[in-house]
């Protein structure tokens, strides 16, 4: 399933947030959207998820304009995990994940109970939360909680998963856990992942494709090794960086100083 923007322009209260963005997010790939603060990354992700609909241009899902796809039908194909989520204090993991089945339910028709249960069990299995199903979401650690929210998105059985800075506020072990789940979704279940990432090195290790947004426009799109270089870091973030090779042979970028 292919997600694509054509000449996407977003302005809010007279200010341009995104200008003329044309991007293709290929099927079965993990794309990381990176860029400086305020560049418009989150707005782009929100527009892709149809959370923000006040834009010019087009967003196409398999060639179909997402404005013309019904809200619930879209949520069956594309799941999003925004940054600001909340749940009532007594919500259990299982109930939260079950909310992911909402797009399959309607006022008139009760859903297919078997399909619901299978989707919930699968989501709990993938995020390794089976033991936690009766726990309250708020009683979990940050990493477990983030996995619970990802499980809810997975219960939607999406082809495309959109994540807005999924590792923010997590410690390094939990960050790794979340990124490994993302890898597994892609490798085993062939879910297309589009994520806004803060951490350049996560993008380098866990993405197949990088889209860099700068000054409300596209700076470039391409494979990580080409896009994430010392030169682009200087041009996009204004930092001078060194490259190291870690024990697994991965390149690691380490910012050294600010360049003017």
């Amino acid at each position: 399933m292919l997600l694509e923007t054509r000449n996407l322009t977003v302005s809010m209260e007279g200010k341009t947030i995104l200008q003329d963005i044309s991007l293709r997010f290929a099927e079965g790939k993990r794309t990381a959207i990176i860029g400086p603060n305020g560049a418009g990354k989150s707005t782009l992700l929100r527009a892709l998820a149809a959370l923000h609909s006040d834009y010019r241009g087009e967003i196409l899902l398999d060639g179909e304009n997402i404005r013309r796809i019904g809200r619930k039908r879209l949520s069956q194909r594309l799941a999003v995990l925004p940054q600001n989520v909340q749940a009532p204090p007594d919500t259990t993991v299982e109930r939260l994940v079950d909310y992911g089945r909402f797009p399959y339910r309607s006022w008139f028709r009760s859903s297919d109970a078997k399909a619901d249960r299978e989707a919930v069990e699968w989501a709990l299995f993938v995020t390794r939360l089976e033991e936690f199903r009766q726990r309250q979401v708020l009683s979990l650690s940050g990493g477990e909680r983030q996995r619970a929210w990802i499980a809810m998105a997975l219960a939607q059985r999406p082809k495309i998963l959109l994540l807005d800075e999924p590792t923010t506020y997590l410690d390094i072990a939990h960050q790794l856990e979340v990124m490994q789940i993302v890898r597994q979704l892609y490798e085993e279940y062939h879910i297309t992942v589009i994520m806004v990432l803060h951490d350049i090195n996560h993008a380098l290790q866990y993405a197949d494709e990088i889209a860099i947004i700068k000054n409300h426009g596209i700076f470039g799109q391409g494979p990580p090794k080409e896009m994430l270089t010392v030169d682009t870091l200087a041009a996009v973030f204004g930092v001078k960086a060194d490259i190291f090779i870690n024990s697994r042979g991965d390149a690691i970028l380490s910012p050294i100083s600010i360049v003017k």
Binding site: R71, K72, L74, V80, P82, A87, Y99, F102
Partner: peptide, 18 residues
């Protein structure tokens, strides 16, 4: 059921198709 979903925050609720 709609009220339940609304309690997850507006963005999440929209993302779930509400």
């Amino acid at each position: 059921r709609h009220l339940n979903i609304l309690q997850l925050g507006d963005e999440m609720a929209k993302g779930l198709g509400l």
